[in-house]
């Protein structure tokens, strides 16, 4: 395996997390250990097993197109740190 420190930095950046050097070293080591452990599964021969993305044997769970009342707006915005004229307000972000 071998997770590099650069990979940890990249993943941290995608997750918007900031670490100092000691943490980066520690996470590199820990992630490496975790992946090594999960890698054990590769010892199994799965060449005759269908790939699956879900563990429960269900498909097509559907609902009819019927309206359900939405949440009252004061409740929608109740936990918003900032709001204005019925909108959530966030720091200015232009991608």
């Amino acid at each position: 395996m071998g997770i590099t420190k650069e990979e940890v930095e990249y993943i941290a950046r995608l997750a918007r997390l900031e670490f100092d050097e000691t943490e980066k070293e520690a996470f590199t080591h820990q992630l490496d250990k975790i992946l090594e452990y999960v890698d054990k599964i590769n010892e199994l021969d799965t060449s005759h097993v269908q790939p699956s993305s879900h563990v429960i044997p269900l498909e097509n769970v559907l609902r009819e197109d019927n309206v359900k009342e939405s949440l009252p707006r004061d409740l929608v915005l109740a936990n918003a740190p900032k709001k204005e004229r019925g909108y959530f307000k966030v720091p200015k972000v232009i991608e």
């Binding site: 019927n66 359900k68 939405s70 004229r85 019925g86």
Partner: peptide, 21 residues
């Protein structure tokens, strides 16, 4: 009439955040 994964309406031009859950 409703959204992809919930029963909220899809009416155009409704007041902001009035069709959410």
């Amino acid at each position: 009439k409703t959204k992809l994964f919930c029963g909220c309406r899809t009416t155009f031009g409704a007041p902001p955040n009035s069709q959410t859950c």
